[in-house]
């Protein structure tokens, strides 16, 4: 719970600083790159943890297929349910 509060707090602080114009223009111009650098760093660490975890490596061979199927079904039905609910309330579609 403390993690969630920390993340929420930092998001709000970043938002307020930026909204109020307290962030230097040079940093604002590089914010996309900074986000991507953090994201790739996190993905690398996530991958590293998977590679280090013997439990995960062994289990992947044994029940990996079930996990993939559960993953696919939960993702697909999440998208479908949200899509149906949005249609139910008549929300207009927004796409690129």
């Amino acid at each position: 719970m403390s993690g969630i509060l920390l993340y929420l707090g930092l998001l709000i602080i970043g938002g307020i600083f930026s909204y109020r114009g307290w962030i230097h223009k040079a940093m604002l111009a590089r914010i996309d790159r900074l986000q991507m650098a953090c994201l790739f760093g996190l993905l690398f660490i996530m991958g590293m943890r998977i590679g280090m975890d013997d439990r995960v490596k062994e289990a992947f061979l044994k029940i990996g297929l079930h996990a993939v199927l559960f993953g696919v079904f939960t993702v697909v039905f999440s998208v479908l349910t949200v899509h149906l609910l949005l249609r139910l309330i008549g929300r207009k579609q927004v796409t690129k």
């Binding site: 993690g3 920390l6 993340y7 930092l10 998001l11 709000i12 602080i13 970043g14 938002g15 307020i16 600083f17 930026s18 909204y19 109020r20 962030i23 940093m27 604002l28 914010i31 996309d32 900074l34 986000q35 953090c38 994201l39 760093g41 996190l42 660490i45 996530m46 590293m48 943890r49 280090m52």
Partner: peptide, 24 residues
């Protein structure tokens, strides 16, 4: 790596906040 993830996520969320706040 637990600590690296926490620090990385904190930085990332701060940057995402800045990105969101850019839009008035």
């Amino acid at each position: 790596s637990d600590n690296w993830l926490t620090v990385g996520l904190c930085l990332l969320l701060f940057f995402v906040g800045i990105d969101i706040g850019k839009n008035k």
